[in-house]
Structure formats: C-alpha cells, structure tokens
Design a protein around this nucleic acid. Sequence first.
DNA 1: CGGATCGTTGATCAACTTCAACGGTCGTGG
DNA 2: CCACGACCGTTGAAGTTGATCAACGATCCG
Lengths: 198, 198
Amino acid sequence: MTDEEIEPFLQHLQKRVPFSKQELEELLSYFREKKIKKRQFIIQPEFVARHRSYVLEGAFRAYVIDDGGEEHTIQFAIEDWWISDYNSYVYQTPATMFVVALEDSVILQIDYDSEQKLKAAHHRYETFFRIMAERSAAYQQRRVISNLTRTAEERYNDFAERYPLIVQRVPQYALASYLGMTTEFLSRIRNKKMKKKS
Amino acid sequence: MTDEEIEPFLQHLQKRVPFSKQELEELLSYFREKKIKKRQFIIQPEFVARHRSYVLEGAFRAYVIDDGGEEHTIQFAIEDWWISDYNSYVYQTPATMFVVALEDSVILQIDYDSEQKLKAAHHRYETFFRIMAERSAAYQQRRVISNLTRTAEERYNDFAERYPLIVQRVPQYALASYLGMTTEFLSRIRNKKMKKKS
DNA sequence: CGGATCGTTGATCAACTTCAACGGTCGTGG
DNA sequence: CCACGACCGTTGAAGTTGATCAACGATCCG
C-alpha cells in the first residue's frame, strides 16, 4: 500500500491519538490491505471474526437473520469507518452476523492477536482502542435512544439528515431494516416527502 | 469506607484486570463513597455528568424524556453495575438523561478528571477503562439487535430470563419503558403468562 | 385515614406489517 | 450485445401489534 492511498487512515488514527511517526509506522505494519468484491462476505455466522476492518474505499453492511428468516441490518460502513461483528471480534466467539461488501471495496485489516499484542506493548495503542470502544458504545446508545423515542418516519428523517452519504449508497431494503421498518413502509415515507417538495 | 464494604468492588476490578495490591489501593483512593436516598437524582439534563458511579448497594434508573413528555428508560443499575449518562460523561457535554435512585443506595464515584489522570498515569488503568467501554458497546449492541428482531413479548421474556433480579426490583412502568412498550401492554403480557401457569 | 402513585382491564384507535401484484433495472450467459 | 431472469422498489388493500384513553382497585406513605 502506498502512502497516498492510506493517507485517510493516518489522519483517522491521528485524530484520535497524536501518534509519532514511528508509532504510526509500527501500527501500520500490523494492517493488511485487502480488496473485496461486491457481494463478497468478510464475516459469516458460526465463524469467529478474526479481523477488525477499516474501510479505505467502498461500502459494507452487517446484518443478522432472525428466527423468521428476516434480515436486520446492524451496521453500515463506508470510507473512514470500521466494521466487524463486534461481539464476535472482541470476545472471540462465533459470529452471529454476516458482513458483506455492497460495492467493490478496499479495506485495512488487523487481526485479533496483533491487536492484543499492540495493546499490551504500548500504552498509546491501548488508548487508541479504548477511544474506539467508547465511540462505539456512545453510538450504540444513541441508536437505542432513537429506537425508543422516535417514530419510523422520524428515525428515517434523522438518519437521512445525519448520514446523507449512506442513504444515497445503500439499497433501500438494507436501510429499512437498519431503521427497524419494512421496505414497503420506508418507500411510503419517502414518497410522501417527494410529494411535499413538488 | 471499610475493606469489608468494598470487597465486591475489589472483586469487580480484579475480574477485569489483575491489579496488584498497590494498584488497587491507588485506584480506590480516587473513588468516593456516597449514600443516595430513594428518589434522589445523581444526574440531570443540562448539567454535565461529572462522575461515573459503581453501585455497592441499591438500584438506579437512567431515563430520557421525549418531545411528547414520555419517559424512556435507558439503563438500570443494581449492585455491581456502573451507571452514568454515558455520552455526557465520556464527552463532558450536557446530559440528556436523568439518573435517579430507585432505593436508598450506596455508590462509589470517580470524577472525570481523576479518571483521565489514572488512564494517563498507568497502562493498566487505561486497559481497565478500555474493557469497560468494550463491554458497554457489546451490551448496547445486543440491545439494538433485540429491539430490531424481537416482539414486545419476546423482549420481555428474554429480559426476565436474563435479569430476573432487575425485574423483581424495578417498577413496572420503568421496565416497560426500557423494553419499548407501554405499561398497559406489559401488564397484559404478564397476565397472560400468569393464566398459563395456573 | 387520605391522597398520590402504580398496576389492571376494557374499548377503541393508529402505526406499521403483510400479502399480492406490477414495472423498472441490473447483470449474466448465450 | 441482446434477452432473460432475478432482484429491487412501488402501490393498494387488508390485517396485527401495540398504543391510547378512561375508569377502577390496590398499595404505599405520610
């Protein structure tokens, strides 16, 4: 991987912890670039998630399938986001999620053992992963609150305002299942908005 | 605070990171014991959450109030759990939640600045808080998944099975709002179960 | 004892789902 | 490069889940 390609990743790291040049290089040495084709899975149920992936280019979707066979989107990830099956990766237990590429993508992966080594080796790497976990917890909690306090239409409006790029790039049915509604209902919500604008 | 009283807290810490005796003592020196009366608030909207609280004894409830004036429970905490307004504490921004004692309680509080100092001072303290954040993120994500994939009745049954102690101790309306349903509906669910058993 | 709070029950209502049918688009193989 | 099938989004009608409103009984606490 060239310096140019991974510039966004370096920025990402330094925005969270002010690493030195050497530290960044050490960190980087543990990541491997991987190209993933559209529709390819990087995580599947039953298998333990061995990597945490940073998206350099492309888009992913994590979802579970419930007892009734319905898909429910748990997370999206586009450029500059991380994705994995959080529970599976952190506790090294079998995954319950699928994580699939929505587009041809390029990711940077670190594996679980390397992450442990890094965290053990230097305080600052530990700090970095602590910050990642905190942000993740805060994000999830905002989502819980949104689920509890808002109607389907409000959840869509909030999401569309906050993450317009994601709304543009992911299929409707995936977005609907992320927001906790059917694709038909989301279609109706959007259509209602269209009419208002004209 | 006597050694005996805080034994559960020491156990709690060591289960997460194998601290030495000296480390435990240093950690402890940053915590202050506080007695909280039933119905007393330890966090309120607008004010920044300055503490993270470990429950030694008693029970708490964190909730938000939506635009329509409805309360939504975000978290419960009984013995051996932590509670705060996560977003407010971690990012030191004004709280959006109320956190109130459901019973007369005893907590151990650490303030934000002390936590920063601890994390900066020693790698192991950083590790401890990293683990806290990870657990929190994992918990929230399971809750999101439960909200998306299960019906009201299933959510109640799952919760009752996993956290029977909490179901016994918190008021019905608080539990209903945690599970994302009305108190009337939860009452009907419970009543249906009672009939089955007889 | 008296008022406030909490849980219950019934009747009605609203939000959202389900089912079914259709049109458009995408990508894949011949 | 075209044709075909699969998949995706849309629309309408009917159905469900869970909410709302209202009234009442029980319990707790001062």
